[in-house]
Design a protein around this nucleic acid. Sequence first.
DNA 1: GAACACAGTGCAATCGAGTGCGAACACAGT
DNA 2: ACTGTGTTCGCACTCGATTGCACTGTGTTC
Lengths: 377, 377
Amino acid sequence: MAAQDPPSSVEPAARPGSALTIYDVARHAGVSIASVSRVLNGHASPRPETRERVLRAVDELGFVPDGAARALSSRLKEVVSVVFRRAHEGSGPVFEDEAENLAFIDVINRGVEAAAQRRGFDLLLSSVAVDDATPWRRIANLAGKSDGVLLHDRVLIPDDIARLADRVPVVTLAGTPTPASVNICGDNGRGMRELAEHLLGGHGYPGLGYLAGHLDSPDSIDRAEAARQVAARHGAAFFEGPQWCGEYNAAGGAGVIHRLLDGGAPLPRAIACANDQSALGAIHALRERGLRVPQDVAVTGFDDVPVARHLTPSLTTVRQPIRQLGAEAFELLHAMIAGARPDGREVVLPVELALRASCGCPDSGGAPPPAPAAAAG
Amino acid sequence: MAAQDPPSSVEPAARPGSALTIYDVARHAGVSIASVSRVLNGHASPRPETRERVLRAVDELGFVPDGAARALSSRLKEVVSVVFRRAHEGSGPVFEDEAENLAFIDVINRGVEAAAQRRGFDLLLSSVAVDDATPWRRIANLAGKSDGVLLHDRVLIPDDIARLADRVPVVTLAGTPTPASVNICGDNGRGMRELAEHLLGGHGYPGLGYLAGHLDSPDSIDRAEAARQVAARHGAAFFEGPQWCGEYNAAGGAGVIHRLLDGGAPLPRAIACANDQSALGAIHALRERGLRVPQDVAVTGFDDVPVARHLTPSLTTVRQPIRQLGAEAFELLHAMIAGARPDGREVVLPVELALRASCGCPDSGGAPPPAPAAAAG
DNA sequence: GAACACAGTGCAATCGAGTGCGAACACAGT
DNA sequence: ACTGTGTTCGCACTCGATTGCACTGTGTTC
C-alpha cells in the first residue's frame, strides 16, 4: 500500500472571516463559549435573554461553526459517503464520450441525499475510475471523513467490503451481499421474469436476446438468468453471450447491435436490455440500420429512468423505485450508524412493469402515433 | 433565524473498530504518534525502517485516520460542497414524477468530482427544495463542513451569496455574478445566436418559438434574448411568454405544447427549447398530437446531454462543455481556497452547434433515416 | 431566616491528528 | 575521548466545539 496521500497541499488561506470561532461569539455576546454552544445546539437550558444575545452576536458576526471541530467533539460527522464507479475519464481536459450509466446512479444518489437531508446528514460523493484496481486507499480516506459508507455496484471486491465494514457501517447498492454488509436492490428476478413473460407469452415473439450490462454485475447476472429461464419455459430461442455486452450505456448498446449486424447474425425478434440507457442506444442503432422498433424488433429497458416515457418510441421497461432504493439504503445505514445491527443481509424492493410502445404495446396516454399530421403555423 | 439544528441525534455507536486512533498505531509499532503522523503524510524524515514498522502496524490494525481531527488540526478539510435546487420532492415515500433537470446538474457535478479527486478533495453534495425560501442555515452548515462552496443556479439570492462569500470561497455555476463571487457558465448568447441563425437563416423557417426554462434563470434569460434578436434581424415571427415556460424538464416541455395546442394557437415552424430535457418532452407531446418532427415542427435543445445523439430524431442542440464547466469551477474554487483572489467576475466557456436531425438536418453518421427496413431474424 | 431545590452559567477536560522545537542519537573528523 | 554536524524522534501544545461537573443566584418551603 502506498503511503502518499493525494497531491493536495494548499495553504490554509489568509481569509480573515474564517478565523471566527465560538470564542469570538462568546466575547461579543458577553457569555461563555458553553452558552453559545448550547444555544446553537438548541439545548433547553439557556434562558431566553441569553439566547437572544447569543443569536444576535452570531448574526452580527456571521459566525458559522466549524464542522470538523464539531465532528471531533461530538463524535458524529453527520456525513455519509457514497462511492460509485465511473467510466473511463478521457485523457486530458476533453471529456468526449460520456459513456456512462448516468441516470441510474445519479437518481439513486438523489434519493440518498433527500433521505439524508431529513436527518440532517449530508452526502460525501466520490467515484472510482473504472480501471482503478486498488481503490482501497481512497475509500478508506472517505470512510475517515464520514460516519458510514454507501457502495454502488462494482466498487470494491467482497474482501475489501468486509474489511471496510469492520471499521465503519457499510451498505451496498445493487451489489452483492457479504457477511459483513447489507445489500439493497430491486427485485431483478421478478421484474425480468414478468417482462420476458410479456414478450414471449403476451406478444408471442419467437426469440429473445439479452443485451447485458457489465458481465460481472450482480444485477445483470440476475436479469439474464431470469430471462433465460422464461425463454426455456417457452421453448423460445435465447440469445446472449460476450458479444451481447452493452456495459449499461447507450454507446455500448448501439455497439452490440452494430457488431451483431456486421457479423451477419440474425437478430431475435425481441431484445431485453440490461437498462434503459443501453436500450436507447440499441434502438438508435437499429434505426440507423434501417430496422423499425417495435415493428421489426421489440426492445425493452430496465429501471424506468425519468426520460423513458418521453422517448420515441416510448420505452417499455421495468420500473424500479430508484429514489426509494437510495432513500432506504440511507435509512438502513443511518440505523447502523446509530448502533443498530441489521436484521438481514439483503433488502429487496418490489418492481413493476411499465408497458409502453417499444415492445409493441400501444402507447399509453396519447393518441395512436402514426396518425397523419395536422397543420402547422 | 431559527436556532434548532436538523432533527439529528444519533448515539456515537458502540463500534469497537472505530475507536482506533493514531495512539494505538503508535503503541503497536513502538513509536510516537508524531512518527505515525509523519509516515502517513509522506514526510521525508522517518527513516525506512521506522516507516516500515508504522506501515505494517497501520495495515495490521486496519487503521483509518479520522477526517475531522485531521481537518481540525491542519485547517483543511479537503472537501468542497455543491448545492443545487431540486424539484418538489413529492409527499411521503413516493417520488412519483421525477420532474427534474437531472442530467445537466449531475454531469456538472461529475465534472466537479473528477477535478476534485485529482486534488485529493471530495464533494459534499446537498440540495435545496424548490419551495425552501430560506436555505441559508442549511448552506451555512455545509460551509462549516467544507473549504469552499459551489452554488448551482437559483440556490441563493445575491445578498445571501455575498454574505456567504464573505465567510468562505464561493463560485456559482450558470448563475449570476455578484461582487463577491465568481460565476462560470457556457456562452449562452453566442450558442443561441448561432442556433437561431441556423434555423431562420440556414433552414429558412419563417417563425421561431422559445420554450423557456425557469423565468428567473439567467441562462434562460440570456438564451431568450439572443433568440429574440436573431428573429428580429430576420424579420421572423418570435413566440415567447409565460405560457412558454417549460421549467427545464420533460414534463414541462410537453406541457407547453399541450397548452398551446389546446388553446388553439398556431405553432411556429421551429421551436428552440431552453434545454435538452424540455426539447425531449416537447417532441414527445408533438408526436402525441400527430405532428412530425422535424417535418412539421423543428425542435432544438440546449446542453447536448449524453443521450441527445441517441434520441429519435437525434436532437439538434448546443453543445456545452458540461463536465469541463464543473471541472473549471472546481479549479477556480480550489485556487481561491489556496488564497488566490479571482481575476474577474465571470468565466465564459465556448459552446458549439451540434446539428442533428431534429432541426431538419440530415442525421449525421448513420444512413439516411427513412430507408425501408431490412429483414429481421 | 435557614435549608433546600433547581435552573442558568462557566471552567476545564476532551475528542484525534499535526507539528515546532528541542532532546537524543549516530557518525565522522581531529 | 571530545566536539561538530546532521538526522530521527517524541513531548507537549494546538486546532474549535461539546459537555460533565461545579458553582452561583434565585425562588420555595418549613
